[in-house]
Amino acid sequence: MENSIVLKNITKEFKVLNRHEGLKGSIRDLFSRDYKTVTAVDNVSLEIKKGEIVGYLGPNGAGKSTTIKIMTGILKPTSGEIMVNGKTPWEDRTSNCEKIGVVFGQRSQLWWSLPLVESFKLLKDIYMIEDKNYNDMLDFYASIVDLEPLLHKPVRQMSLGQRTLSDILASFLHSPEVVFLDEPTIGLDVAMKSNIRDLIAAINEQKNTTVILTTHDMGDVDALCKRIVIIDKGKMLYDNDMEHLKKVFGSYRTLSLRIRSSQMTDDFITSLEERFSPYGISISTENNWVSLVINEDRIKVMDVLSGVQENGSIKDMKLEEISTEEVIKRIYTEGI
Protein backbone atom coordinates (compact mmCIF):
# COMPACT_ATOMS: atom_id res chain seq x y z
CA MET A 1 0.00 0.00 0.00
CA GLU A 2 1.19 3.50 -0.75
CA ASN A 3 2.43 5.88 1.92
CA SER A 4 0.32 8.87 2.83
CA ILE A 5 2.91 10.54 4.97
CA VAL A 6 6.64 10.09 5.16
CA LEU A 7 8.85 11.92 7.63
CA LYS A 8 12.60 11.48 7.46
CA ASN A 9 14.67 12.82 10.33
CA ILE A 10 12.39 15.78 10.85
CA THR A 11 13.67 18.33 13.35
CA LYS A 12 12.00 21.59 14.26
CA GLU A 13 13.72 24.21 16.35
CA PHE A 14 12.15 27.41 17.57
CA LYS A 15 14.21 30.43 18.42
CA VAL A 16 12.75 32.20 21.39
CA LEU A 17 13.87 35.42 22.95
CA ASN A 18 15.15 35.15 26.49
CA ARG A 19 12.75 37.59 28.10
CA HIS A 20 13.66 39.74 31.04
CA GLU A 21 11.37 40.85 33.80
CA GLY A 22 9.89 44.25 34.48
CA LEU A 23 9.62 47.38 32.36
CA LYS A 24 13.37 47.79 32.07
CA GLY A 25 13.66 44.18 31.00
CA SER A 26 10.95 44.59 28.37
CA ILE A 27 12.68 47.58 26.88
CA ARG A 28 15.97 45.69 26.84
CA ASP A 29 14.20 42.81 25.09
CA LEU A 30 13.29 45.13 22.22
CA PHE A 31 16.94 45.28 21.21
CA SER A 32 18.01 41.91 22.53
CA ARG A 33 19.59 39.28 20.33
CA ASP A 34 19.67 36.87 23.23
CA TYR A 35 17.90 33.86 21.72
CA LYS A 36 17.66 30.36 23.00
CA THR A 37 16.75 27.41 20.86
CA VAL A 38 13.87 25.11 21.73
CA THR A 39 13.84 21.79 19.93
CA ALA A 40 10.14 20.97 19.62
CA VAL A 41 10.57 18.01 17.29
CA ASP A 42 13.80 16.08 17.39
CA ASN A 43 14.82 13.82 14.54
CA VAL A 44 11.47 12.10 14.02
CA SER A 45 11.03 9.55 11.23
CA LEU A 46 7.67 8.04 10.37
CA GLU A 47 5.87 6.31 7.58
CA ILE A 48 2.10 6.30 7.59
CA LYS A 49 0.17 4.27 5.07
CA LYS A 50 -2.96 5.33 3.27
CA GLY A 51 -6.03 4.55 5.35
CA GLU A 52 -4.26 4.13 8.68
CA ILE A 53 -5.53 5.67 11.89
CA VAL A 54 -2.50 6.55 13.95
CA GLY A 55 -2.65 7.74 17.54
CA TYR A 56 0.00 10.38 18.03
CA LEU A 57 0.56 10.60 21.75
CA GLY A 58 2.77 12.32 24.25
CA PRO A 59 2.57 14.50 27.33
CA ASN A 60 1.93 18.27 27.16
CA GLY A 61 4.61 20.07 25.22
CA ALA A 62 5.89 16.87 23.63
CA GLY A 63 5.80 18.35 20.14
CA LYS A 64 2.62 16.80 18.77
CA SER A 65 0.95 19.97 17.54
CA THR A 66 4.23 21.16 16.08
CA THR A 67 4.56 17.93 14.08
CA ILE A 68 1.00 18.38 12.82
CA LYS A 69 1.73 21.95 11.79
CA ILE A 70 4.73 20.68 9.83
CA MET A 71 2.59 18.05 8.14
CA THR A 72 -0.01 20.66 7.17
CA GLY A 73 2.66 22.91 5.67
CA ILE A 74 2.20 25.77 8.11
CA LEU A 75 5.64 25.24 9.58
CA LYS A 76 8.81 24.48 7.72
CA PRO A 77 11.02 21.91 9.40
CA THR A 78 14.49 23.05 10.41
CA SER A 79 15.89 19.92 8.84
CA GLY A 80 14.74 16.61 7.43
CA GLU A 81 12.46 15.58 4.62
CA ILE A 82 8.71 15.35 4.57
CA MET A 83 6.19 14.14 2.02
CA VAL A 84 2.43 14.30 2.38
CA ASN A 85 0.43 12.79 -0.49
CA GLY A 86 3.63 12.81 -2.51
CA LYS A 87 4.35 16.52 -2.04
CA THR A 88 6.43 18.63 0.30
CA PRO A 89 3.80 20.51 2.30
CA TRP A 90 5.71 23.68 3.18
CA GLU A 91 6.75 24.20 -0.43
CA ASP A 92 3.28 23.64 -1.76
CA ARG A 93 1.07 24.81 1.05
CA THR A 94 -2.09 25.76 -0.81
CA SER A 95 -2.22 22.67 -2.98
CA ASN A 96 -1.40 20.45 0.01
CA CYS A 97 -4.29 22.08 1.84
CA GLU A 98 -6.75 20.99 -0.82
CA LYS A 99 -6.14 17.39 0.16
CA ILE A 100 -6.04 17.57 3.90
CA GLY A 101 -8.52 18.29 6.66
CA VAL A 102 -7.63 19.72 10.03
CA VAL A 103 -9.34 19.98 13.40
CA PHE A 104 -7.70 21.77 16.28
CA GLY A 105 -9.88 20.81 19.20
CA GLN A 106 -9.73 24.13 20.99
CA ARG A 107 -10.84 26.30 18.10
CA SER A 108 -13.40 26.21 15.37
CA GLN A 109 -12.76 26.60 11.68
CA LEU A 110 -16.43 27.27 11.04
CA TRP A 111 -18.01 30.65 10.42
CA TRP A 112 -19.20 31.75 13.79
CA SER A 113 -22.43 33.46 12.90
CA LEU A 114 -23.44 31.31 9.94
CA PRO A 115 -25.74 28.32 10.21
CA LEU A 116 -23.75 25.13 9.73
CA VAL A 117 -25.24 24.45 6.31
CA GLU A 118 -23.94 27.83 5.07
CA SER A 119 -20.47 26.99 6.36
CA PHE A 120 -20.69 23.71 4.49
CA LYS A 121 -21.76 25.45 1.28
CA LEU A 122 -18.86 27.83 1.65
CA LEU A 123 -16.45 24.93 2.12
CA LYS A 124 -18.00 23.29 -0.92
CA ASP A 125 -17.00 26.29 -3.03
CA ILE A 126 -13.64 26.84 -1.38
CA TYR A 127 -12.59 23.22 -1.90
CA MET A 128 -14.44 23.05 -5.21
CA ILE A 129 -16.41 19.96 -4.25
CA GLU A 130 -18.63 18.54 -6.99
CA ASP A 131 -22.38 18.76 -6.31
CA LYS A 132 -22.73 15.02 -6.37
CA ASN A 133 -19.88 14.34 -3.98
CA TYR A 134 -21.16 17.04 -1.67
CA ASN A 135 -24.67 15.63 -1.54
CA ASP A 136 -23.40 12.08 -1.12
CA MET A 137 -21.26 13.20 1.76
CA LEU A 138 -24.15 14.94 3.50
CA ASP A 139 -26.30 11.82 3.07
CA PHE A 140 -23.48 9.74 4.44
CA TYR A 141 -23.14 12.04 7.46
CA ALA A 142 -26.89 11.93 8.05
CA SER A 143 -26.67 8.14 8.17
CA ILE A 144 -24.15 8.25 11.02
CA VAL A 145 -25.11 11.28 13.11
CA ASP A 146 -28.25 13.26 13.72
CA LEU A 147 -27.39 15.99 11.25
CA GLU A 148 -30.68 17.79 10.63
CA PRO A 149 -30.94 19.73 13.94
CA LEU A 150 -27.34 20.93 13.57
CA LEU A 151 -27.55 22.16 10.00
CA HIS A 152 -29.65 25.23 10.64
CA LYS A 153 -28.04 26.30 13.86
CA PRO A 154 -25.50 29.13 13.86
CA VAL A 155 -22.20 27.81 15.15
CA ARG A 156 -22.09 30.33 17.98
CA GLN A 157 -25.29 28.86 19.40
CA MET A 158 -23.89 25.34 19.49
CA SER A 159 -22.67 23.53 22.57
CA LEU A 160 -19.01 22.57 22.66
CA GLY A 161 -19.87 19.01 21.71
CA GLN A 162 -22.09 19.97 18.79
CA ARG A 163 -19.47 22.40 17.56
CA THR A 164 -16.70 19.84 17.72
CA LEU A 165 -18.84 17.34 15.90
CA SER A 166 -19.58 19.96 13.22
CA ASP A 167 -15.91 20.81 12.95
CA ILE A 168 -15.03 17.19 12.37
CA LEU A 169 -17.76 16.85 9.75
CA ALA A 170 -16.39 19.98 8.07
CA SER A 171 -12.85 18.63 8.02
CA PHE A 172 -13.91 15.49 6.13
CA LEU A 173 -16.33 17.24 3.78
CA HIS A 174 -14.00 17.54 0.78
CA SER A 175 -12.96 13.88 1.05
CA PRO A 176 -9.37 14.72 1.97
CA GLU A 177 -6.64 12.11 1.75
CA VAL A 178 -5.43 12.85 5.25
CA VAL A 179 -7.17 14.35 8.26
CA PHE A 180 -5.33 15.69 11.28
CA LEU A 181 -7.30 15.68 14.50
CA ASP A 182 -5.54 17.53 17.29
CA GLU A 183 -7.34 16.72 20.55
CA PRO A 184 -10.80 16.47 18.99
CA THR A 185 -12.51 15.09 22.07
CA ILE A 186 -11.18 17.61 24.57
CA GLY A 187 -13.90 18.66 27.02
CA LEU A 188 -16.65 16.39 25.68
CA ASP A 189 -18.96 14.11 27.61
CA VAL A 190 -18.91 10.34 27.26
CA ALA A 191 -21.83 10.14 24.84
CA MET A 192 -20.44 12.76 22.48
CA LYS A 193 -16.99 11.17 22.63
CA SER A 194 -18.38 7.84 21.56
CA ASN A 195 -20.43 9.57 18.85
CA ILE A 196 -17.33 11.19 17.48
CA ARG A 197 -15.30 8.01 17.63
CA ASP A 198 -18.00 6.17 15.68
CA LEU A 199 -18.04 8.92 13.12
CA ILE A 200 -14.27 8.88 12.60
CA ALA A 201 -14.20 5.11 12.38
CA ALA A 202 -17.05 5.08 9.85
CA ILE A 203 -15.52 7.72 7.59
CA ASN A 204 -12.12 6.05 7.73
CA GLU A 205 -13.71 2.75 6.77
CA GLN A 206 -15.81 4.19 3.95
CA LYS A 207 -13.35 6.66 2.43
CA ASN A 208 -10.07 5.06 3.44
CA THR A 209 -8.97 8.41 4.84
CA THR A 210 -5.69 8.48 6.70
CA VAL A 211 -6.23 9.89 10.18
CA ILE A 212 -3.61 11.29 12.53
CA LEU A 213 -5.14 11.59 15.95
CA THR A 214 -3.65 13.46 18.86
CA THR A 215 -5.28 12.95 22.21
CA HIS A 216 -4.78 12.59 25.92
CA ASP A 217 -7.74 10.25 26.15
CA MET A 218 -6.78 6.58 26.13
CA GLY A 219 -10.41 5.79 25.27
CA ASP A 220 -10.02 7.48 21.88
CA VAL A 221 -6.92 5.46 21.21
CA ASP A 222 -8.53 2.18 22.24
CA ALA A 223 -11.56 2.85 20.09
CA LEU A 224 -9.77 4.01 16.96
CA CYS A 225 -6.07 3.37 16.65
CA LYS A 226 -4.36 0.19 15.59
CA ARG A 227 -1.03 1.88 15.76
CA ILE A 228 0.38 4.43 18.10
CA VAL A 229 3.36 6.71 18.00
CA ILE A 230 4.58 8.26 21.22
CA ILE A 231 6.86 11.23 21.48
CA ASP A 232 8.20 13.12 24.45
CA LYS A 233 10.39 16.21 24.47
CA GLY A 234 10.36 16.02 20.68
CA LYS A 235 11.91 12.56 20.50
CA MET A 236 10.11 9.50 19.25
CA LEU A 237 9.84 6.87 21.97
CA TYR A 238 7.55 4.30 20.52
CA ASP A 239 6.03 3.35 17.20
CA ASN A 240 4.16 0.09 17.13
CA ASP A 241 0.81 -1.67 17.22
CA MET A 242 -1.66 -1.15 20.01
CA GLU A 243 -1.64 -4.92 20.52
CA HIS A 244 2.01 -4.82 21.37
CA LEU A 245 1.53 -2.01 23.86
CA LYS A 246 -1.38 -3.83 25.45
CA LYS A 247 0.71 -6.93 25.84
CA VAL A 248 3.39 -4.97 27.60
CA PHE A 249 1.19 -2.82 29.76
CA GLY A 250 -1.90 -4.98 30.05
CA SER A 251 -0.79 -6.25 33.43
CA TYR A 252 -0.36 -2.78 34.87
CA ARG A 253 -2.96 -1.26 37.19
CA THR A 254 -3.07 1.98 39.10
CA LEU A 255 -4.18 1.52 42.68
CA SER A 256 -5.21 4.72 44.42
CA LEU A 257 -5.75 4.69 48.19
CA ARG A 258 -7.05 7.41 50.48
CA ILE A 259 -5.21 7.24 53.77
CA ARG A 260 -6.33 8.74 57.07
CA SER A 261 -4.77 12.18 57.07
CA SER A 262 -2.95 11.80 60.40
CA GLN A 263 -1.03 8.89 58.92
CA MET A 264 0.01 10.62 55.70
CA THR A 265 3.54 11.36 56.88
CA ASP A 266 6.79 11.35 54.96
CA ASP A 267 7.86 8.37 57.01
CA PHE A 268 4.84 6.44 55.88
CA ILE A 269 5.58 7.16 52.22
CA THR A 270 9.25 6.24 52.59
CA SER A 271 8.32 2.98 54.25
CA LEU A 272 5.99 2.18 51.32
CA GLU A 273 8.71 3.03 48.84
CA GLU A 274 11.21 0.83 50.60
CA ARG A 275 8.79 -2.01 50.74
CA PHE A 276 7.50 -1.92 47.16
CA SER A 277 10.27 -0.57 45.00
CA PRO A 278 11.77 -4.06 44.55
CA TYR A 279 8.56 -4.90 42.68
CA GLY A 280 8.92 -1.94 40.32
CA ILE A 281 6.02 -0.04 41.84
CA SER A 282 6.08 3.71 41.43
CA ILE A 283 4.38 5.82 44.06
CA SER A 284 2.92 9.30 43.88
CA THR A 285 0.80 11.26 46.34
CA GLU A 286 -1.82 13.95 46.10
CA ASN A 287 -3.63 15.30 49.17
CA ASN A 288 -4.51 12.16 51.11
CA TRP A 289 -4.35 9.89 48.10
CA VAL A 290 -1.47 7.54 47.39
CA SER A 291 -1.25 6.16 43.85
CA LEU A 292 0.69 3.00 43.16
CA VAL A 293 1.35 1.73 39.65
CA ILE A 294 1.49 -2.03 39.97
CA ASN A 295 2.75 -4.63 37.51
CA GLU A 296 0.57 -7.62 38.31
CA ASP A 297 3.09 -10.00 36.81
CA ARG A 298 5.37 -9.13 39.68
CA ILE A 299 3.07 -8.59 42.62
CA LYS A 300 -0.66 -9.03 43.22
CA VAL A 301 -2.85 -6.00 43.94
CA MET A 302 -4.18 -7.79 47.03
CA ASP A 303 -0.67 -8.19 48.42
CA VAL A 304 0.00 -4.50 47.94
CA LEU A 305 -3.29 -3.66 49.65
CA SER A 306 -2.56 -5.73 52.70
CA GLY A 307 0.99 -4.43 52.79
CA VAL A 308 -0.26 -0.84 52.94
CA GLN A 309 -2.85 -1.72 55.54
CA GLU A 310 -0.19 -2.91 57.97
CA ASN A 311 1.04 0.67 58.43
CA GLY A 312 -1.97 2.83 57.66
CA SER A 313 -5.71 2.73 57.57
CA ILE A 314 -7.35 2.95 54.17
CA LYS A 315 -10.49 5.13 53.94
CA ASP A 316 -11.22 4.71 50.25
CA MET A 317 -9.77 3.05 47.18
CA LYS A 318 -9.84 3.03 43.37
CA LEU A 319 -8.40 0.51 40.96
CA GLU A 320 -7.87 1.70 37.42
CA GLU A 321 -6.32 0.61 34.16
CA ILE A 322 -3.01 2.32 33.65
CA SER A 323 -3.52 5.76 32.04
CA THR A 324 -1.89 7.05 28.87
CA GLU A 325 0.23 9.44 30.85
CA GLU A 326 1.39 6.56 33.02
CA VAL A 327 2.21 4.40 30.00
CA ILE A 328 4.15 7.22 28.48
CA LYS A 329 5.97 7.87 31.72
CA ARG A 330 6.83 4.19 31.92
CA ILE A 331 8.04 4.08 28.36
CA TYR A 332 10.08 7.15 28.99
CA THR A 333 11.71 5.91 32.17
CA GLU A 334 12.00 2.22 31.38
CA GLY A 335 11.96 2.04 27.61
CA ILE A 336 10.15 -0.80 25.93
Binding site: G73, R93, C97, F104, Q109
Partner: peptide
Protein backbone atom coordinates in the same frame (compact mmCIF):
# COMPACT_ATOMS: atom_id res chain seq x y z
CA UNK B 1 -1.96 36.22 18.93
CA UNK B 2 -4.66 33.66 19.57
CA UNK B 3 -3.17 31.29 17.01
CA UNK B 4 -6.41 31.19 15.03
CA UNK B 5 -4.40 32.19 12.00
CA UNK B 6 -3.35 28.55 11.78
CA UNK B 7 -6.88 27.67 10.68
CA UNK B 8 -6.83 30.35 7.99
CA UNK B 9 -3.49 29.08 6.76
CA UNK B 10 -4.82 25.56 6.17
CA UNK B 11 -7.31 26.87 3.62
CA UNK B 12 -6.37 26.12 0.02
CA UNK B 13 -5.99 29.83 -0.76
CA UNK B 14 -3.49 32.58 -0.25
Amino acid sequence: QSGKIVLDLVRPME
